[in-house]
Design a protein around this nucleic acid. Structure first.
Length: 477
RNA sequence: GGGGCAGUAGGGUAGCCUGGUCCAUCCUAGAGCGUUUGGGACGCUUUGACGGCAGUUCGAAUCUGCCCUGCCCCA
């Protein structure tokens, strides 16, 4: 698992940088012998564990966690026509049990609506059962035909957090969409990943939904990555799966639903947004190791230094930090590179000089060096890490701002999408969308943009000159 | 979906065109011993590879076919 020494490809060569950092920083091993399936290294999984811990805490405020089966009978899966059409090309089917063919083939869930909603139909009887808000964190399978890419385009999504809510009215469901967007915004704030929300055009919404609001971020190469979606399902699924309740007047009503999801693309975003030429840079909130202690061992004071380092480790651990003491027999410099590659936010060095002066040396992943008094070390590290996290937020936000361009013509749009996201006026017609997409070699992400970095306005459509509204155009992953 | 290129130890490579001198080169990583340690240490010893299957041939890392996997371009 040990990385080679030597430099990483520079981050401005993003595609190579990404592949290389995944394995050198021990996030994913791509050598699993099935296309589109990858293996989490423990360090990568540690990031996932902390990030999903944050997500779980957010969801637990107002949802209950659950777990539905992986296999969905074909008979249930095929009920919702629009939904099937969206997924039929990418479903894995289990057709045999041992050597005998199954009467009813079983789908490996590409998403769980058709597993969950038949049960919702049984569970929901009365308006007092509503609202129902459940979520699960599971793996899903999609037979991707395009390029697979670790954490980004997978045949097994290992970390799909999907929530499914049921409400008495359309308005309540629509309000839940807003709640979900708020949770996702808060989640990405914690990861210090800036996002833009927009309403996907009709042809790009979730199959079977009334509308879809997506959460996107901008990657270092200017392409956008969709890292969350929230779907207003209306009553499409409740009519198909017969999810009804008796209202206060004793009348049977169809329920209204939403669903929303986040996957390990969130981890891809953290890696890509914050990383640099030396490797990962992790926000303290998700770093499996927040503080690494590197003892500076000099021959005759070896035991003394190691004792002091152990005592420091204990103090930091008791204060609640995820801390690691690196007492391997290596040069200190080699250890610095090692932990920088893995994104550890803070390194603390302790050597003979520190012991004599009763200090330690703290160095942030951004290279800021601070001498701390040994007695005030816990408070010192708290404030250094807090400030470091804040710096990441500010830098990421600035990087995003730099990649957003307002464009008034197709030429300007074509130019803008080479470096990032273009904001243009679009009339909403599919005809103009196709014209724009063909002319600038990028996709319409959506309208009803929500981002404090983008001022929304009305204006003439870049394609037809008709009445248009601000719309995002970008190259996408 | 169409086309192109590639696959040699854990990682990166040489060899392939022109089959034999390859029980496969070099760097790095791993194991052991010793000396070291404030930004990628050094010495000695040592483990480890031709993607898979079939074919051509006296002989295949090298040539042919299929499969698997990866990367790039086009739709």
């Amino acid at each position: 698992m040990e990385e080679d020494t030597g430099a990483l490809p520079r981050k401005d060569n993003f595609s190579e940088w990404y592949n290389e950092v995944l394995w050198r920083a021990e996030i994913m091993d791509v050598r699993y012998p099935v296309k589109g399936l990858y293996v989490w290294y423990p360090h990568g999984f540690g990031i996932r564990k902390r990030a999903y811990g944050i997500l779980r805490d957010l969801m637990d405020r107002d949802h209950d966690e659950t777990m539905f089966p992986l296999l969905i009978p074909k008979t249930e899966f095929m009920k919702e026509a629009e939904h099937i059409k969206g997924f039929e090309d990418e479903v894995y089917w289990v057709t045999h049990g041992g050597t005998s063919e199954l009467d009813v083939p079983l789908a490996l869930r590409p998403t769980s609506e058709t597993a969950i909603y038949p049960m919702y139909s049984l569970w929901i009887r009365s308006h007092t059962d509503l609202p129902l808000k459940l979520y699960q964190i599971v793996n899903t399978f999609r037979y991707e035909t395009k390029h697979t890419r670790p954490l980004i385009r997978l045949r097994e999504i290992t970390s799909f957090k999907e929530a499914h809510t049921v409400h008495a009215t359309w308005e309540e469901a629509a309000a839940q969409v807003e709640v979900a967007l708020g949770l996702y915004k808060e989640f990405y704030d914690s990861l210090r990943v800036p996002v833009i929300l927009s309403r996907r055009p009709g042809w790009d919404k979730f199959p079977g939904a009334d509308y879809t609001i997506a959460v996107d971020t901008i990657m270092p190469d200017g392409k956008t990555l969709q890292i969350g979606t929230v779907h207003m399902l209306g009553d499409h699924f409740s009519r198909t799966y017969d999810i009804t309740y008796e209202d206060a007047n004793g009348e049977r009503q169809y329920a209204y639903q939403t669903c929303y999801g986040i996957s390990e693309r969130s981890i891809a975003a953290v890696i890509s947004v914050h990383g640099d030429d030396k490797g990962l840079v992790l926000p303290p909130e998700v770093a499996p190791v927040e503080v690494v202690i590197v003892p500076i061992i000099v021959g005759k004071r070896r035991d003394e230094v190691l004792t002091a380092a152990s005592a420091l480790k204990e103090d930091l651990q008791n204060a609640g930090f995820a801390v690691r003491l690196d007492d391997r027999d290596m040069r200190p410099g080699a250890k610095y590179y090692h932990w920088e590659m893995r994104g550890v936010p803070l390194r603390v060095e302790i050597g003979p000089r520190d012991i004599d002066a009763n200090t330690v040396v703290a160095v942030t992943r951004s290279g800021k060096k601070i001498q701390l008094d040994r007695r005030g070390v816990v408070e010192g590290i708290f404030s250094i890490l807090a400030e470091f996290g804040e710096e990441l937020s500010v830098a990421a936000r600035q990087a995003m701002a730099d990649r957003i361009t307002v464009a008034a013509t197709l030429e300007e749009t074509a130019d803008a999408v080479k470096a990032g996201v273009a904001v243009v006026h679009w009339c909403g017609s599919q005809e103009c969308a196709e014209k724009i997409e063909a002319a600038v070699d990028a996709s319409i992400l959506g309208s009803d943009i929500r981002s404090d970095l983008i001022a929304v306005s009305d204006g003439p459509c870049v394609a037809c000159g008709g009445k248009g509204t601000s719309t995002l155009v970008a190259r996408t992953y």
